[in-house]
Design a protein around this nucleic acid. Sequence first.
RNA 1: UGGGGCGUCGGCAAGUGGUUAAGCCAUCGGUUUUUGGUACCGACAUUCGUAGGUUCGAAUCCUACCGCCCCAGCCA
Length: 573
Amino acid sequence: MTDPTRPDAPTETPSPEEEGPNFVADLVAADVAAGKHGGKVVTRFPPEPNGYLHIGHAKAIVLDFEIAKRFGGRCNLRFDDTNPEAESVEFVEAIRRDVRWLGYDWGEHEYFASDYFERLYEWAKVLIRKGLAYVDSQTPEQIRLNRGDYHRPGTNSPFRDRSVEENLALFEKMRAGEMAEGEAVLRAKIDMAHPNVVMRDPLMYRIRHVPHHRTGNRWCIYPMYDWAHGQSDAIEGVTHSLCTLEFEDHRPLYDWFLEALEIDPRPRQIEFARLNLTYTVLSKRRLLQLVQGGHVDGWDDPRMPTLSGMRRRGFPPEAIRRFCRRIGVSKREGVVDVTLLEHMVRDHLEHTAPRAMAVLDPLKVVIDNYPEDAEESFEAPNHPTDPSFGTRTLPFCRELWIDRKDFMLDPPRKYHRLAPGREVRLRYACLVTCTDVECDADGRPTVVHCTFDPASRGGTAPDGRKVRGTIHWVSARHAVRGECRLYDRLFDVENPQGEDDFLAHLNPASRVVVENAMLEPSLAGLEPGTRRQFERTGYFVVDPDSTPERPVWNRTIALKDTWAKMVARGATG
RNA sequence: UGGGGCGUCGGCAAGUGGUUAAGCCAUCGGUUUUUGGUACCGACAUUCGUAGGUUCGAAUCCUACCGCCCCAGCCA
């Protein structure tokens, strides 16, 4: 018997036709052609370590890393850790793990915005000296009020014209911890009447007397996103800073800081639309709600759209990467049909997952003309079309398990599975004909009696007669009992994000646990993460909860089921 | 009502003045099949948010209008 375990293929080089449309790549290509940055391309993936990465981040990761790769450049992993109140090392570690799992390597280029705090502080003083930044002592409330709104210009702060010396002294006091939270902020002096509210003297620093997960108590002033991001990009030599659409309004400020500091060459910010997926939610807030509300078992619940959840669910990283390439990159905000992702998952698994047989809803079959204590075995291929997967041995005896769905007392015309008087093929074993059925008081079948054709060894009829149905089975004497967790979409509406109460639309059948599935022997004792196709049922993966005594398999995704569709449509004849 | 974006098939998304308006997913037919899986074949926008205009010719240029998204955190 050949070991059917196959590792996932190594990171593929995307073929040109696989790379989806991508206007960002076109812009970068134009910059390279124009000789900007000496033709170099450096990007960065800049997560804030305050949560888990999800499929939406995967889109950004694939874009950031593959744009860099395409132009012979590199992509940095930079933690945007400027807000100590929400961030932690736990998230830093989870993010590293997920990016690696997705298949990307940032090499030595791991950075933290917090590494630049000193540099940023010095730069802030440069702006103060140029008269381009000032310490504002207004209360948060006053600042908000004086910012104006979409219809009214803002009002200058009474502290806007402090002298350079006073600003410097005050700013140093801020850093020295001599001021309370909210007592003062450092602001860029731009234009309180600017039509873009982002430009109305944006805050650069706020005071927070809280420890930071990396800098400890060294700082009590922390830079704001706008002040930290572009400068961090510049420090790292980033040439193209890719981000989502909501930062489009911030681009003028991104450029303003760079220009004020006379940084050259300057990184270029390019915005693209974030990913939305049907039948799930992707906002950090809602994901957090699912976890904290106990609606799922945690960030890595297999129903979560997080990378850790998808990993546990059994989604191959290759499939996620291909999905991200296929959806393309544009500025249109849309909702991608989750069937595209599911297609990529099935497509990858079709070629990489060894086959096996498992019965999820067992119904006993007795082969009446098979000797009580005899047993034999059949050799079955681990893949129907790829011989390199090898074969395995399937034990067989008089009593077997088949799936309840594969037997009907009174079948419709187009049903071609087992029924009284009908003959079917037991996959890779033999042909059997149903001769009798035992039922319980409710008329529910309990035992199906069959006779087998001794000449049909392997499943081929010696006389060449046609047998339409082929069903899977497991030898009762040799079956291994295991748990199967059948996962499905988390929500039962296409766009839960758009619902008033998205939690009201959780799919009650998103997880169905089968306590006693009957597994063929080869399905026991496998490592978590091992994938298999349970023939005619779906793709499964071994869950970390699995033990040698009790295998636990998660359904990654069901096989397409044309018959079920026909049944639903009433087109079964 | 200010600023910034976006509108091409059910969903993504090409197309940048002359193409029969790509491709993929979904859907619907059919062939093959020891998985009602896979594979393969076929169907699927006379039309590009709307209305005008420019042009021999427009999804592509101009004008107006309509619709949707984002922005008033000392979050990112």
